[in-house]
Design a binder for these strands. Structure first.
Length: 812
RNA sequence: GGGCGAGUGGUGGAACUGGUAUACACGACAGACUUAAAAUCUGUUGCCUCUGAGGCUUGCGGGUUCAAGUCCCGCCUCGCCCACCA
């Protein structure tokens, strides 16, 4: 009896698996399974928070293989980006050297943690053979009018000295540096994701993704239905166009507010107000979003002009205030008492308010007694002429129709989704393949000249001026006229790199295009994609956008190549806080692998709780996992030589082992790893009892432990391989087919029937499956404990649920 | 302010379409082995009264039902995402 030595055993099998090419992807899959996990930033701090999603993906891939699938499963590195660049600057290293170092550490860790990756397929997005095709994609988008340049107020991060996407700004602060974001005007490249707003919404119906992710994307796209209303400007022939979702409140609209950047502000401002308005515009221009948000007190100035309410014809003063956003709708709102913000603003500046919607109690508008303000979306109209008594939703239709007949309103749709700003004033990214020529203007780099190589071995300058500004990079020839020209010095957002990487795994060394259509044909669609919920609206939306574009442009057969996504939960550190290096609560995989073995860590993580919920890493609880591995090993590894046979035990062992196989198959298939493991633990406890005290035939024993080893192989690959060899296995356990279970052995022929009185458990008995209701009731009545109780009262009703319970309803 | 989700023992968490609440594990306590400890093994472990036995229990308050952790209504608390989006 030797003790299990995870370190020695795991090292042994790691080597064997590598040498025998166990994880090589089959060339011609008949029954493909493409297991995809979100690749990682090689920023140097791989911790158990990364390992968690990967373990789930690995279990599913190994399981699929045992189910008879040909499996493609690998990983890669999202190698470009700010974290790597910042880390390199901090350490005085070259970004590429730093990245390579991390990649080799992480590759070793991927392997040590037992992942069934095809290590010949690892992708590194910072290599020219990869980013050549990221640039190629940019050119396709450009050719199709989906990439364009525009001068725009952008989010400027003063610490990292770069432009950030809206998605990377959190409450006015930069997601990474935490700096307060400033506004700055620059010429930037955008991808026209807004062209796909509807397609991306509709596509959600065709994919099996968690609702939380779908809802987040719907919310982000933010389609809203409303009306575009024209407000005539007083003493003028012009109109102000206003988008509203609440046209039902138009009869109480008493004033209008414009965003400071609204194009009509200047012409609408009367001379006497000019000074004040201009000053206000300047102030809000310089304000960052944080200040605008934090300033709870709404401020604004009057323009001196009026518009007419198209419904009532009353005059409405036109104000300017920065709580109205220039970039949404028409940058103008009409205001009334039914909006919290509007009414606060009106009170502050003594603007009269009116109301026209009451809460829905009943539809009788004569019951309005007091001045009641309804902030709900839905109410009943009053003070609204012939629309009185309608519900808000009815009124929205009718009022839009009515004003529409006068040419003053129309139904319309708005989105909050903005185009994707992809320019970054950073070094460590894919250069944007564009050349500026004084004669020819903006000229795309011809495809034959790709890649535009990112100059390496550059010292990264702390001033933030990109090394791409060096003359040797900037100065070039115009591809069209051959004259002097300059290269674009911005690089692409790393989300561009990661928006298509999964299309390359099927043939990662393909050099005739970004992806090999033949290989895609073999492997797509992705069978399961696994990753964290934090990517719900960025990566996961960009991935879909890119697929929609590629499909439309004829490069991809489907526009939703990832039909199934599983969202893993997040792992918190031992302190209950989200695991991150900055908080100092990271758990280092190497330490645990050396001490306990990768299997124990895998088991511990997967047993912690529901895979979609994650949980806190609690070192105190870890021992249990490691203990289980030892008991499991001991159970199967040491000899069992029974003297005689007990038939009852024999039958029970058979039944339990076949049930185990069924349970694990069902649970693993739907990523319920925690309950699968619990079932295995129960089985090991039971089998240990049999081994210690029981007597069963060697054949049954061997069948039982083989089933255990095989069905646990996806979860704890090392110890199962070792045990499989002990049991006399010739080939790797990971090449075996999933064990078959006998349907007869997993169905019980007896069942425990619960006896209740008034719904409360009082007793129970065992009966054969399928026993008739009358018989069950008769047995239940015959039980002493029950008899005593029911005699005390009068039986009103008896409920019998076949194979489950008998419930006596009595009156006492 | 909006959206989504969650509240179950000392702890992490189980519980299929309403049908035995607390599986599995951690911790704790007791015992065996040991000179001793660690490791391992065995037993106990939701709470309350307790001799047997009985009563109570899934954040709080109602409701539907023979039966509610699960369904409905109203609250409270926490988490995540979004947010002066008209």
């Amino acid at each position: 009896m030797s003790k299990y030595e995870p370190k020695i055993v795991e090292e042994k099998w790691r080597k064997v698996w590598r040498e025998t090419g166990l994880y090589k992807t089959p060339e011609n899959p008949k029954n493909p399974y493409y297991g995809l996990v979100m690749f990682a930033y090689p920023s140097g701090d791989l911790h158990c928070g990364h390992w968690y999603p990967y373990t789930g993906g690995d279990i599913l891939a190994r399981f699929a293989r045992m189910q008879g699938h040909d499996v493609l499963h690998t990983n890669g590195f999202d190698a470009f980006g700010l974290p790597a660049e910042n880390a390199a600057i901090k350490r005085g290293l070259m970004a590429d050297v730093w990245t390579e170092e991390n990649i080799s550490t992480m590759t070793r860790q991927y392997e040590a943690t037992g992942n069934m990756y095809d290590y010949d397929r690892l992708i590194n997005t910072s290599k020219p053979e990869y980013y050549k095709w990221t640039q190629w994609l940019f050119l396709q988008l450009y050719k199709n009018g989906k990439a364009y340049q525009k001068e725009a107020l952008v989010n400027w991060d003063p610490v990292d000295k770069t432009v950030l996407a809206n998605e990377q700004v959190i409450n006015g602060r930069a997601e990474r540096s935490g700096a307060e974001v400033e506004k700055k005007s620059l010429k930037q490249w955008f991808f026209k994701i807004t062209d796909y707003a509807d397609a991306l919404l509709e596509g959600l119906d065709n994919i099996e993704w968690p609702n939380r992710i779908k809802d987040a994307q719907k919310n982000w796209i933010g389609k809203s239905h409303g009306s575009l209303v024209k407000f005539p400007i007083k003493d003028s022939n012009d109109f102000l166009e206003i988008y509203t979702t609440r046209i039902d409140t138009i009869y109480s609209g008493t004033f209008i507010v414009l965003a400071p950047e609204h194009e009509l502000v200047t012409s609408l401002t009367v001379d006497s107000q000019k000074q004040e308005v201009v000053k206000y515009q300047e102030i809000s221009q310089s304000k960052t979003d944080t200040v605008r948000l934090e300033g709870k007190d709404k401020s604004g100035v009057f323009t001196g002009s009026y518009a007419l309410n198209p419904a009532t014809n009353e005059s409405m003063p036109i104000w300017v205030a920065d709580f109205v956003l220039g970039g949404y709708g028409t940058g103008a709102v009409f205001a009334d008492a039914h909006d919290q913000r509007d009414s606060e603003f009106a009170k502050k500046y003594n603007i009269p308010l009116k109301t026209s919607v009451k809460p829905v109690d009943d539809r009788d508008i004569s019951k309005i007694e007091s001045f009641e303000i309804c902030f709900e979306d839905d109410g009943i109209l009053y003070n609204s002429e012939h629309f009185d008594g309608l519900t808000s939703s009815e009124a929205r239709e009718k009022i839009t129709e009515y004003l529409g007949s006068k040419g003053l309103a129309q139904k319309t749709t708005q989105y909050r989704l903005r185009d994707w700003l992809i320019s970054r004033q950073r070094y460590w990214g894919s250069p944007i393949p564009i050349i500026y020529c004084e004669k020819c203007g903006t000229v795309p780099v011809p495809e034959k000249d790709l890649p535009v190589v990112l100059p390496l071995a550059q010292k990264i300058d702390k001033s933030g001026k990109s090394p791409l500004y060096r003359d040797s990079f900037i100065n070039t020839e115009c591809p069209e006229c051959g004259g002097q020209a300059k290269r674009e010095t911005d690089t692409m957002d790393t989300f561009v790199d990661s928006s298509w990487y999964y299309l390359r795994y099927p043939n990662p060394h393909y050099d005739k295009g970004p992806f090999d259509p033949e290989a895609l044909n073999k492997w797509l669609p992705v069978s399961t994609y696994i990753g964290g919920p934090e990517h719900a609206t960025m990566h996961l939306l960009y991935v879909r956008f890119m697929a929609h574009f590629l499909n439309e442009a004829g490069f991809l057969e489907t526009n939703e190549p990832i039909p199934r996504f599983i969202c893993n939960g997040l792992i918190d550190g031992p302190d209950g806080q989200k695991m991150s290096k900055s908080r100092g609560n990271v758990v280092d995989p190497d330490e645990y692998v050396n001490k306990y073995g990768a299997d124990s860590v895998r088991l511990y993580m997967m047993f912690m709780g529901s895979y979609t919920d994650g949980g806190p890493w609690d070192p105190a609880r870890f021992e249990g996992a490691s203990r289980f591995i030892s008991r499991f090993y001991e159970l199967v590894h040491s000899d069992y030589k029974p003297q005689e046979i007990n038939t009852i035990q024999e039958v029970e062992l058979q039944s339990r082992s076949h049930k185990l196989v069924k349970k694990l198959k069902e649970d693993i298939a739907v990523a319920k790893f925690n309950t699968a493991i619990a079932a295995a633990m129960e089985f090991v406890n039971f089998a240990s009892q049999i081994k210690r005290y029981g007597v069963v035939s060697e054949a049954s024993w061997k069948e039982a432990v083989s089933m255990l080893v095989l069905s646990m192989a996806p979860i704890t690959p090392y110890v199962c391989e070792e045990l499989w060899q002990t049991l006399g296995g010739q080939e790797s356990v990971h090449k075996q087919a999933w064990p078959r279970y006998d349907e007869k052995l997993v169905t019980d022929d007896v069942v425990t029937i619960v006896v209740q009185v008034n719904g409360k458990l009082k007793n129970e008995f065992v009966a054969e499956i399928g026993t008739a209701n009358e018989e069950l009731e008769k047995i239940a009545r015959g039980l002493d404990a029950i008899n005593k109780i029911i005699q005390k009262g009068e039986i009103i009703k008896v409920v019998v649920v076949p194979n489950r319970l008998v419930n006596f309803v009595i009156k006492q």
